[in-house]
Design a protein around this nucleic acid. Sequence first.
DNA 1: ATTGTGACATACG
DNA 2: CCGTATGCCACAA
Length: 118
Amino acid sequence: MADKHTYFDWVYEVTKSIPAGRVTSYGAIADYLALGSARMVGWALNQAHSQPDVPAHRVVNHKGELTGRNHFTPPSRMQELLEREGIVVENNRIKEFETHLWIPSVHLADLDIDLGAD
DNA sequence: ATTGTGACATACG
DNA sequence: CCGTATGCCACAA
């Protein structure tokens, strides 16, 4: 990573760390980074199209709604990917959201993520 | 330096 | 749960 790490990169790293079959919220990522705010995370993911390794479909808002699906191609792609992971989506909302919720600041606490370790 | 923008979160009623 | 209001802050022009 010779490139300068911007806020986007941090969000990408955390998002890529989300296990399959799990989802997280923008606020959870923002809380883990302890930087910016949830809006910054969503804004960063908006540019995640440049990063094919970033499973942005696993990031939803705190209501469990697939708010970013409109940025996928096609929009239904986001729900399709989630269901492929075994997540049930109903009315653009994740069923048992809190059950599938994966909080980096908790589950990733012991992980040796390379945030700045590069 | 200033302004506009945004895939959100929280508080309150 | 719903609607409204306000805070949030990195980045591009």
